[in-house]
Design a protein around this nucleic acid. Structure first.
Length: 420
DNA sequence: AGATACCAGATCCCCTTCAC
DNA sequence: GTGAAGGGGATCTGGTATCT
């Protein structure tokens, strides 16, 4: 049985055995023929070509492509090495075994760090020796505390299993279209799934009002102390909170280069900010007076007129001392994290240990959540929905529900009588 | 040596569809 | 008309290669 052997050793990089075929891990996949080539002589090649063409249909979105590619390699590795079957022979029981395998993979299949799938000179595909199909991670807070990755502590999350189901199901539906299989073994186990906990609703992850006050004040202090670096930090924090921006909406990429003239005034003298967001969808965000003041402050610091003029090409978030825009979300994240870190320190000094500890887990996206969930308290839901760029009020409503829970929690233990 | 671009995997968000 | 499942696509985080 292959299992014993494969639990002790890392799985061989299967795709390397098929080196004569196109690289499924190339960023720009080669054009894939629409039918199976006669060259697919072996079972492995046959599986491989199906997987490759499935992946090719997701070329347009890097994130999705990467996620699907990862799960497909796991499936092929397991199918060939452990189950010793073609993917076309997999039945419901096999898929269940595969899910369990992914929930608790053998030690040898778990890596402790992300690394390139391949290395070596261009054109020479050589598996990276440290690469593994699964990787154990350590949270930001734990990393700070000096914790290192331990393969023994690998645990797949509910979210991972859920997306694994989705991807496998898509793949087998694709195989049905290709007439490679006749049924979808994944769909058969969906119903009475023992693998997923249903009805789990996550809390909205946001800053408390106290935390946000500290963070904003910290940004202001940083800006006062080191304007050259941190006027920009302050401006970014304010954009993320007051306009509910996603991190990607602040940086220049191939789909959009945000500039100052994305702020514009309409015939009623109201200011709007034009955003190109998730899924290439454009929207306008209403600009509050406080946000407008923040914009003026930052522009004065940059030596610009207080308000942008139409056609102005200045980047919304310029690189320090340069005319070029910031192009990396990592850069923005570093700015925000730096501000969070200093706010944590200030809270700790003021004796707010618990609140400061929670703030350590905060991420950039929390600022968007915080802005939305504060504003649904006082603004009509449709307005917040449109400014946030939600397609449906159902999404925005989640933030209202969160507020209700919070409200109830604060009321739950209030006494009936005042005893003093 | 530091900045930065890019890569990989885990996790989260949120739109669409479907069941009731 | 709700609520949840399904699915696509984003963010979050750390690692590495490359540039300056």
């Amino acid at each position: 049985m292959a299992t014993t052997q494969s639990t002790r050793q890392p799985p061989p990089p299967i795709f390397d055995q098929l080196a004569h075929l196109p690289d499924p891990f190339a960023r720009q996949p080669e054009p894939v023929p629409s039918h199976l080539p006669a060259a697919a002589r072996t079972v492995h090649e046959d599986d491989f070509w199906h997987a490759l063409r499935f992946l090719a249909s997701y070329e347009g979105s890097t994130a999705t492509f990467n996620a699907y590619r990862r799960e497909l390699e796991r499936l092929l590795q397991w199918s060939w090495l452990v189950q010793e079957k073609s993917i076309r022979e997999l039945r419901r029981e096999d898929i269940e075994q595969f899910i369990r395998f992914c929930q608790d993979p053998p030690r040898a299949w778990i890596g402790t760090k992300n690394c390139a799938r391949y290395r070596g000179p261009e054109g020479e595909r050589k598996a990276h020796p440290d690469w593994r199909p699964f990787v154990v991670t350590v949270s930001k807070v734990q990393t700070r505390a000096g914790k290192t990755a331990d393969p023994g502590s690998y645990a797949s999350s509910q979210a991972s299993i859920k997306s694994l189901f989705a991807i496998l199901s898509s793949f087998f539906n694709f195989l049905i279209q290709e007439e490679a299989v006749t049924s979808n073994p994944v769909a058969l186990i969906r119903q009475k799934s023992k693998f997923l906990v249903s009805g789990q609703r996550r809390e909205v992850r946001r800053l408390s009002n106290l935390q946000w006050d500290f963070v904003l004040e910290t940004a202001e202090l940083m800006a006062a102390e080191d304007p050259d670096h941190h006027e920009r930090t302050l401006f970014v924090m304010q954009c993320l909170y007051a306009m509910y921006l996603r991190i990607s909406e602040l940086v220049a990429d191939e789909r959009h280069v945000p500039t100052m003239s994305d702020f514009h005034r309409d015939s009623d003298n109201n200011w709007w900010f034009e955003v190109v967001g998730k899924g290439n969808k454009a929207r306008s965000v209403s600009v509050s007076n406080a946000m407008l003041a923040a914009l003026k402050r930052y522009r004065l610091h940059l030596g610009l007129t207080p308000l942008p003029v139409p056609g102005e090409r200045t980047p919304l978030v310029p690189a320090l001392g340069g005319r070029r825009p910031v192009t990396s979300t990592r850069h923005i994240r570093a700015m925000v994290q730096n501000c969070f870190d200093q706010a944590v320190e200030r809270m700790r000094l003021e004796g707010l240990a618990d609140e400061s500890y929670e703030l350590q887990a905060a991420t950039v996206h929390w600022l968007r959540h915080t802005g939305i969930s504060e504003d649904v308290k006082v603004r009509p839901v449709d307005h917040v929905r449109d400014d946030a760029g939600h397609a449906s009020s159902l999404t925005t409503d989640r933030y209202i529900d969160a507020e209700r829970r919070e409200r109830h929690a604060s009321a739950r233990n209030k006494p009936m009588k005042t005893d003093s």
